[in-house]
Amino acid sequence: METILLIDDDVELCAMLTDYLNRHGFRAIAVHHGETGLRVAIEKSASLVLLDVMLPGINGFEVLRRLRAVSTVSVLLLTARGEDDDRIVGLETGADDYLAKPFNPRELLARIRAILRRSSTAENSSAKSGTSGKLLRVDGIELDTAARSVCCDGADLELTDIEFSLLEALMRSPGDVVTREELAVSVLGRKFHPFDRSLDMHVSRLRRKLDDSGRPGDQVKTIRGVGYQLAVRTMQKIAGE
């Protein structure tokens, strides 16, 4: 049974969501304070963290920042409706996805399942393939689909599940434009919405990490109105096929 950690100071909402998630096959735990939530998120092996922005103690952004320094656990950020800046900051800080309050519990459940399905697919791939999985090598970037690891010119690159899936999708079509619609389905697990900035923010974080590794982040190019392209100078075939 997968564990969902809910960090939110709305006690009534937490009680409702805990009951709802428990009835749908999850083990839900609720914490109502920022610092306590951070400690539990680090110490407990939760499959996913539902994190509210407004918290007593330290706010959700600070919880997320400190959590990302030590963990790649999936995080779904809960924001106030209309607070676009909160969503952008959350995604830039490392949230996997966001959902605006008030929300339909069925929409929350769909988002949770999409995130966990992506994580489960990655784990199953690694378990079945061991360390001899398929390698994607493109222009000095090496991505191991089994070990879920990425090296840029020999240096390890730490990516979240979404960033890894995004880079993998681009590396499977090097030099070609991959549409936002295709990436939304394959990476986020949902249909593309023109006002959803999630994909753009994940691309921005991927570029930043490529820059930090010494690899030019502008290698991931935006094709306005269409999608994204991994610009390459040289490329190799997939190993292990």
Rank of each mutant, 00 (worst) to 15 (best):
K191D: 14
G140D: 07
G217L: 08
T3D: 13
D9Q: 08
G25P: 01
M54L: 09
V220I: 15
D176Y: 10
M235V: 07
A122W: 05
M201E: 11
G82S: 03
L230G: 05
L143N: 05
D97G: 10
K209M: 10
R172I: 03
P105S: 05
G154Y: 00
N104M: 10
S47P: 01
H193T: 08
L206Q: 11
G90E: 08
T93L: 14
E107H: 12
S165G: 15
I88T: 13
G60P: 04
E168D: 03
V232Q: 04
R106I: 13
V89G: 03
T72H: 14
R65M: 13
D161K: 09
T18E: 14
A30G: 02
G57N: 02
I4Y: 02
Q229A: 09
G37I: 01
E83P: 00
S126A: 15
P174C: 05
S198C: 14
D161F: 07
S120R: 15
L135D: 08
F61T: 04
A41G: 00
R111V: 02
I223E: 15
G140V: 00
D10T: 01
E181W: 07
S119D: 15
K191M: 07
G140R: 00
V11Q: 06
P102V: 04
V138H: 01
K134V: 13
E142S: 12
N59V: 02
T93G: 02
F164R: 11
K128F: 15
F61R: 05
D139A: 07
I115N: 07
M16N: 05
N59C: 08
E43P: 01
I88Y: 10
D218P: 00
R106T: 11
D86F: 07
A146Y: 03
S71K: 10
E158L: 14
L170S: 03
D212I: 09
V177A: 10
D8Q: 04
D211W: 11
R106K: 13
E12S: 13
R205E: 06
A100R: 06
P105G: 03
I58L: 09
I112N: 02
R81V: 01
R111Y: 04
A169R: 14
V187W: 08
D86W: 08
V150L: 02
L159P: 09
S149K: 14
L17M: 11
G60K: 00
D176P: 01
A80F: 00
M171D: 07
S213M: 06
V40T: 12
G25S: 04
L210I: 05
L157W: 13
T79N: 10
S186I: 00
L183T: 02
R23I: 00
S71N: 06
K128E: 15
D85I: 09
A231L: 09
H24K: 11
L5P: 03
E107T: 11
D156L: 10
G214I: 01
D153K: 11
R23T: 11
G90Y: 09
R172W: 01
A147I: 02
I223H: 08
L166P: 04
T79R: 09
R180I: 10
V63R: 04
T222Y: 06
D156T: 13
L76G: 00
L170M: 04
K128Y: 14
V11H: 10
D85N: 13
R233L: 12
E168F: 04
R190D: 06
T145N: 03
